[in-house]
Design a protein around this nucleic acid. Structure first.
Length: 271
DNA sequence: AGGGTGACCTGTCGGC
DNA sequence: TGCCGACAGGTCACCC
């Protein structure tokens, strides 16, 4: 489900409400991708200082250490004063003095990991290699160019590489390439500076737009308050195989790249 | 070192 | 109706 816009919308939807809360009790369901990294009792009594985002991770700062939350492919968080009984796919639950936080994740590719310090080994493994935030000032043309230098891999695949830029997943990689008029199969290292700049701006534009409309709700994404997103209504190519291009009417083509679906317009994205 | 693949896990959907 | 394969918003580990 979640790429940068969905993760950021999730963050915004509960950060204020949970800040200042005391952790009362934590319950776990089935195993997620990685173990919590501490006893649930260790979290009791800690206070939530705030919620940040790095790449597709939510960082819940605590009075001691922090929780890294990743939504994987199918995860969503919910925060509310009270909730019905925990469902089969709700594998993490945190009762606090200000409400209950729950992670629902049917596929269990997501995770909640406790890091006692920023240098925690698991935290380093997950966050240490991450590249620039696409909507922050370190995502510059010079950095982007340097990251793609000499790469022969297809630009679509490279856009999904978190060392190059974080937060861009399959939907927004497809959409950004369309906006930039770039063929997803083009070798990343062969794109001119001018075309790279177009792509950089397209990545930012598509992410900002998705943020503005609450993210994409394809199947079941919603914010921690239960609000759905509407970006799916504006998708130009993603999941539109065979449908007419919204610009030139050419049927959208679907191919596989790196075991992921790619969608593009053969006329608007020639090279 | 870069690039490609398999693995993790559950649910859903289309085709026969 | 039922079964089976393909595929789904991610990313790490491993191979060459």
């Amino acid at each position: 489900m979640p790429e940068l816009p969905e993760v950021e919308i999730t963050r915004q939807s509960f950060a204020l409400a949970i800040t200042g809360a005391k952790i009362l009790r934590v319950n776990l369901g089935k195993a997620l991708r990685w173990p919590l990294g501490c006893d649930t009792l260790d979290l009791q009594g800690l206070q939530v200082l705030g919620v940040r985002r790095r790449a597709k991770y939510l960082l819940i700062d605590l009075s001691q250490g922090l929780l890294l939350v990743h939504l994987g492919m199918s995860g969503s968080l919910r925060f509310a004063k009270s909730m019905p009984e925990r469902g089969v796919h709700e594998h993490f639950e945190m009762h606090t003095s200000q409400g209950i936080l729950r992670l629902k994740d049917p596929r269990r590719f997501g995770a909640v990991v406790y890091a006692r310090t920023p240098s925690d080994a698991q935290a380093q493994k997950l966050l240490g290699h991450l590249g620039p935030e696409p909507l922050e000032s370190d995502f510059t043309l010079a950095n982007f160019k340097a990251a793609l230098q000499g790469k022969t891999a297809a630009i679509k695949t490279v856009l999904l590489d978190a060392r190059v830029v974080v937060g861009v997943g399959n939907i927004y990689a497809n959409e950004a390439l369309f906006l930039a008029g770039i063929n997803p199969k083009s070798a990343a290292g062969k794109l001119s500076a001018q075309r790279l700049e177009k792509l950089l701006l397209a990545v930012q534009r598509v992410l900002r737009r998705a943020l503005a409309v609450g993210g994409s709700t394809l199947k079941d994404f919603s914010s921690a308050e239960g609000k759905e997103g509407y970006f799916q209504l504006e998708m130009m190519v993603y999941d539109r195989a065979g449908e007419p291009c919204r610009v030139c009417q050419t049927p959208i083509r679907a191919i596989r790249q790196g075991q992921r679906s790619t969608f593009y317009c053969t006329r608007c994205q020639k090279r």
